[in-house]
Simulated scan of single mutants.
Amino acid sequence: MTALEPTILATSGGHRIGGRTRVLFDSLVHHAVDLSGVHGRRPRVLYVGTAIGDAEHFTTRMTEAARVAGFDLTPLHLFPMPNLEDVEGTVLDQDVVWVMGGSVVNLLAVWRAHGLDRIMHRAWQSGVVLSGVSAGSLCWYEGGATDSFGPELRPITNGLGFLPYGNGVHYDSDEGRRPLIHRLVADGTVPTAHCTDDGVGLVYRGTELVEAVAEVPGASAYVVTRDPDGAGVTEQRIEPRRLAPSPRG
């Protein structure tokens, strides 16, 4: 079963340190699975690590996290070539796509070279829940702030644009992101921006933001809009709904 309408969960979280494993899936990943509506079988989750160059050690950690969570995980690698014969068929057969953080600039370039941008759009339209953290959040939007080019944050404006907004991730943990997002919205470089503190996710049905959710206490989401006179921005805080703790680990 897939979601009843196109669904995205864009986050600044989803992972935590485990006891017996290096990484566990936290509540945001479990919520992505819940949004898919899957029941009566093990959820199918596609892990996409393009933004960190398909690092094998992290694929191993994600596979172990999925085992603990009770998910069937399929890694999609694009380096040095796709590891799947039928990429589109495999993506469309999933309940959830979880995209790892890293370089969103590299992710977008490689996805477009392989046509994965178009495949992801078809999956979204068919009810596969698209989700991810950091670069795996920013990729679904028009643009936002990124450190993909170097330590100094810079704008990116060529996101996939499934969601017609800007995006700010790690809004509370990277002090440079909030002022840059404010500037980019104020000067029209990116449209109205939806932003998340660490541990927060934004749920979209179609392109409508329907809810903010959190796996940690005290974190928030924000909507940054350009003032009508163009002189500045207004930041509106959104109180997220606290998710139940992840069920395992």
Rank of each mutant, 00 (worst) to 15 (best):
T21M: 11
R122C: 10
T7D: 12
T157G: 08
G19A: 14
T90W: 07
L243Q: 00
T196H: 09
T7Y: 08
W111I: 01
T90S: 04
M1C: 14
A219N: 12
I156L: 13
R67E: 14
G102C: 13
I181N: 05
M1G: 15
V99N: 01
M1V: 07
R22H: 12
S36Y: 02
V105C: 02
R154Y: 00
L163I: 03
P245F: 09
S137G: 11
F71P: 14
E235L: 01
E85Y: 06
D227N: 15
H77R: 15
V91K: 08
G132L: 05
L4M: 02
L243W: 07
D26S: 07
V97T: 10
A113D: 07
L24A: 03
T90Q: 06
E88K: 09
E85D: 13
G206S: 11
R16H: 05
L184D: 09
H121L: 11
E235N: 12
E215C: 05
D147E: 14
D93Q: 01
V233G: 03
L28V: 06
A51F: 11
H121Y: 11
E239W: 02
S103G: 06
F25M: 09
A193T: 07
V223P: 05
W111P: 02
T60D: 11
T7V: 11
E64P: 03
T74N: 01
G13K: 05
S12D: 14
P80N: 04
A193V: 02
G102K: 14
R44L: 12
V87T: 02
T192E: 15
E208M: 09
S148P: 03
T90K: 06
F71N: 05
A10T: 07
F71L: 11
T146V: 01
R61W: 13
R20I: 15
A214E: 04
A135E: 08
S246T: 08
E64G: 08
M81P: 00
L209W: 03
L180W: 15
S36G: 12
H170W: 13
L78N: 01
A212I: 03
Q94A: 07
D117V: 05
G37P: 04
L202W: 10
A3L: 02
H182D: 15
T11G: 03
P6S: 04
I52S: 02
V91E: 03
V91T: 06
T21C: 08
T11F: 03
E85T: 02
L108T: 00
P80F: 09
H15V: 06
R241T: 15
